[in-house]
Amino acid sequence: MVRLPLTPAEVERGRCLGALLRRARGERTILDVALDAGVSPETLRKIESGRVATPAFPTIAALADVLDLSLDAIWAEVGRSARRAVPRGRDAPERSAS
């Protein structure tokens, strides 16, 4: 399977998601949150740093649950931040899943 390069909007959404999760984690350690969510600490570290810009939905859902975040609120904040950072028309066309 060949992975397509990320669009600027996807990269920015990944950065925004990472920042949101870091803020929500607060004083809790990466280890504690990751174990509670059933993901590896390295995965959470990569998501928070933006190195994994498009984590799997179950991973985001598990982290949201542990951090008491609404998936709707995550989507709204991450989408809003990405729209501000990447001007319309500069992003590649939407890709469809096949």
Rank of each mutant, 00 (worst) to 15 (best):
Val11Leu: 14
Leu6Gly: 12
Gly26Lys: 08
Ala37Val: 06
Leu35Val: 15
Glu27Tyr: 08
Leu63Glu: 00
Ala53His: 07
Ala9Tyr: 12
Ala56Ile: 08
Leu6Ser: 14
Leu35Gly: 04
Cys16Tyr: 13
Gly38Ala: 09
Leu31Asp: 14
Pro8Val: 05
Lys46Pro: 04
Ala34Pro: 06
Pro8Arg: 07
Leu17Asp: 13
Asp36Lys: 03
Val33Glu: 02
Ala53Leu: 04
Ala24Phe: 03
Ala56Thr: 14
Gly14Gln: 00
Thr7Glu: 10
Arg23Thr: 15
Ala62Phe: 05
Ala34Thr: 03
Leu44Val: 03
Thr43His: 14
Pro55Gly: 02
Gly50Lys: 00
Val39Gln: 03
Ala9Asp: 13
Phe57Ala: 08
Gly38Asp: 07
Leu63Asn: 01
Asp32Cys: 08
Arg28Tyr: 14
Ser40Leu: 13
Leu44Gln: 02
Ala61Glu: 11
Leu21Gln: 00
Ile47Pro: 02
Arg45Ser: 15
Ala24Leu: 04
Thr29Arg: 13
Val52Met: 12
Ala56Lys: 10
Cys16Ile: 06
Arg13Pro: 06
Pro5Val: 01
Ala64His: 03
Ala19Glu: 15
Val52His: 11
Thr59Arg: 01
Leu17Pro: 12
Ala19Tyr: 10
Ala62Ile: 02
Arg51Thr: 15
Val11Phe: 14
Thr29His: 11
Cys16Asn: 11
Thr59Met: 01
Arg51Asn: 11
Gly38Tyr: 08
Glu42Gln: 15
Glu27Met: 10
Asp36Gln: 06
Ala56Asn: 11
Phe57Gly: 08
Pro5Asn: 13
Glu42Lys: 14
Leu20Met: 13
Ala19Ile: 07
Ala53Ile: 05
Ala9Trp: 07
Leu63Ala: 02
Pro5Phe: 09
Pro58Phe: 02
Leu21Ala: 08
Ala62Lys: 00
Leu21Arg: 01
Val39Arg: 00
Ile30Ala: 12
Pro5Ser: 08
Lys46Gln: 15
Ala19Gln: 15
Pro41His: 12
Leu63Pro: 02
Val52Phe: 09
Arg23Asn: 10
Gly14Leu: 00
Ala53Asn: 01
Leu6Asn: 05
Glu27His: 13
Pro41Phe: 10
Pro41Trp: 11
Ala61Met: 11
Arg23Tyr: 08
Leu35Ala: 12
Leu31Pro: 05
